[in-house]
Nucleic acid binder design. Sequence first.
DNA 1: CTGTATCCATGATGATACTG
DNA 2: CAGTATCATCATGGATACAG
Lengths: 113, 113
Amino acid sequence: MDIEDLATDEKIKYVQDTLFVVSGKWKLPILIAISQGSERFRDIQRSVPPITTRVLSKELKDLEQNKLVRRTVYDTSPVVVEYTVSPYCKSLKPLVDEMIKWGVNHRKKVTES
Amino acid sequence: MDIEDLATDEKIKYVQDTLFVVSGKWKLPILIAISQGSERFRDIQRSVPPITTRVLSKELKDLEQNKLVRRTVYDTSPVVVEYTVSPYCKSLKPLVDEMIKWGVNHRKKVTES
DNA sequence: CTGTATCCATGATGATACTG
DNA sequence: CAGTATCATCATGGATACAG
């Protein structure tokens, strides 16, 4: 599919979808924390301060729903829950790289006198 | 500059910067409206419904501050104000294209059973 | 026409406590 | 440990009126 064929409205809609998935204060930091080895709820919370349990819980649910994070429950006692980033998560890389590049360049641009 | 050399924290910071500039319901639709020829405040408002004057005013200020939009006041009577997209605005294209691509793909992904 | 000011509803977030 | 529940707070956005 060639994105140039999309109508303007459609383009906007897809952009909004994408923004919705990665926007906010926490989504990317959480993904990074998990991918760097914090797989338990409590670990993630410690790695991404100062996030509260309430917010972390919600964010993890969003990420799971978007298939970027997988949640596995081990039926031990006490229960162990493990979060991992999905393979699909890698598909974000080109996008995130573009965001970094643009952000770097933009900082230069707006601080120019 | 190679973005791979950046520390994780720096990457996150730049991503957040970028998100801040383009996020929200209105920023992209406004840019598109202007670039498609709606150069007056009232025209833009009509092209991007149902935005209120209050919100449009604020969004335009943000965009101007980020140098994506230029505001020109003509000293006529009554005053005419013209908004145009800056040349710099074009630098968003690779990013926006990535967002569209990811959004298209993501929709397929999440609607998979 | 181009906004600003005011008031209000809503949702997001934080703090804290509590459950299994 | 892994969350949920509740309450307070705050930022955002909409509706409306109005000023230059």
